[in-house]
């Protein structure tokens, strides 16, 4: 079993199975460019730095990849009907504890940066599910987003959407 070491922004090392990393487009490209797949190359001696991912987030990413080991990897743009995607129970439980905090959002950013399409899709879907059927003020309250609109601007937005209600 080939292990490849990932190094987080806070310089934590994470040895990861080569097979798992196929889910990440970014790391896969790096592996190919660094010839880490060659038999002659000592992969363990060449850690891959990930300066945009913190250690605790990377740990979560690896945890997710381990669970989804062997899942088909999406390629190209996602043309699926996004509305019909269902977040599996395991993933829902995985995302839920940190849903409104920074951790889940950092995980989403990491998924985007590492180009892990399945993780990105499910993570985004989990976030978008929290918006369903909620009004602007409710979303603001739930996510702690400050309201930057003046009453006049809010009224203008309301009128803009009025026609379809």
């Amino acid at each position: 079993m080939v292990l490849i070491t990932l190094v987080s922004s806070d310089e934590q090392n994470f040895p990861v199975e080569r097979e798992l990393l196929k889910q990440s487009g970014t790391i896969e490209t790096l592996i190919v460019n660094m010839n880490l797949d060659d038999e002659d190359t000592d992969a363990a001696a060449m850690p891959i730095p990930l300066p945009n991912v913190k250690g605790d987030v990377l740990e979560k990413v690896i945890q997710w990849m381990e669970h989804h080991k062997g899942d088909p990897v999406k390629e190209g743009d996602n043309e699926d009907n996004n509305a019909e995607i269902v977040v599996p129970q395991w993933d829902d439980d995985f995302f839920k504890p940190a849903m409104y905090g920074s951790k889940h959002l950092e995980l989403t950013v990491a998924a985007s940066y590492l180009d892990i399409k399945n993780l990105l899709t499910l993570s985004c879907k989990a976030i978008s599910n929290t918006f369903k059927g909620k009004t602007g003020p409710q979303i603001r309250e739930e996510w702690g987003v400050p309201n930057e609109f003046t009453p006049e601007e809010e009224e203008a937005i309301r009128k803009e959407n009025e026609w379809s209600e």
Partner: peptide
């Protein structure tokens, strides 16, 4: 934390919404 997400991530999230949800979302921030 939400609005600190990069635009690309926000767009990824919004792609899972319906038009009505998007209309509501417009009034958030």
């Amino acid at each position: 934390y939400f609005t600190r997400l990069p635009d690309t991530c926000l767009l990824e999230i919004f792609k899972h919404l319906t038009r009505k949800d998007l209309d509501y979302l417009k009034g958030v921030n």
